[in-house]
Amino acid sequence: MAVPLRFRLNHEDVEIHVHDPAATLLDLLRGDLGLTGTKSGCAIGYCGACTVIVDGEAVPACLQMVGLLEGREVRTVEDLAGPGGLDPVQDAFVTCAGMQCGFCTPGHVMAVRALLDRDPDPGEEELRRTVDGNYCRCTGYVKILDSAREAVALERARAQEVR
């Protein structure tokens, strides 16, 4: 029996009916809602490829039970780019070429986005800790860290433009 589930997804109120409240957010996003920007990697919470933002915190969607999302706020990588262009974090990854195959990139982008939402001016240690939460088997992390640093700079510049 499907049960109703109401939450905010990418700034929109959604009400959907889920057959299994114990299913994962990752399966819901990719399989039911067609939001395939969130990638399925290890499915046990370690690789970070499926990182999304729930109530402002980066979490692995593969461990997030959908039934526990009632009334909560979810952001996926599809939410980042808008009419004004890419999000500063996405811009930074493009500028610094912080990817090779690109599979882990949405997870990295969402993890850095969550960090900047919480702390617009994080230190190097915090950036390293954040990047450390996502597996990348291609780059060796140098350009990913460059991208994260660039994201901080772009975020700061954009905030000054708004002022």
């Binding site: 114990a22 994962t24 499915a43 046990i44 919470g45 593969c62 461990l63 997030q64 039970m65 526990l68």
Partner: peptide, 10 residues
């Protein structure tokens, strides 16, 4: 938190 149950299902 649901992590243990999700891993059991996995």
């Amino acid at each position: 938190g649901g992590v243990g149950h999700t891993l059991r299902r996995h």
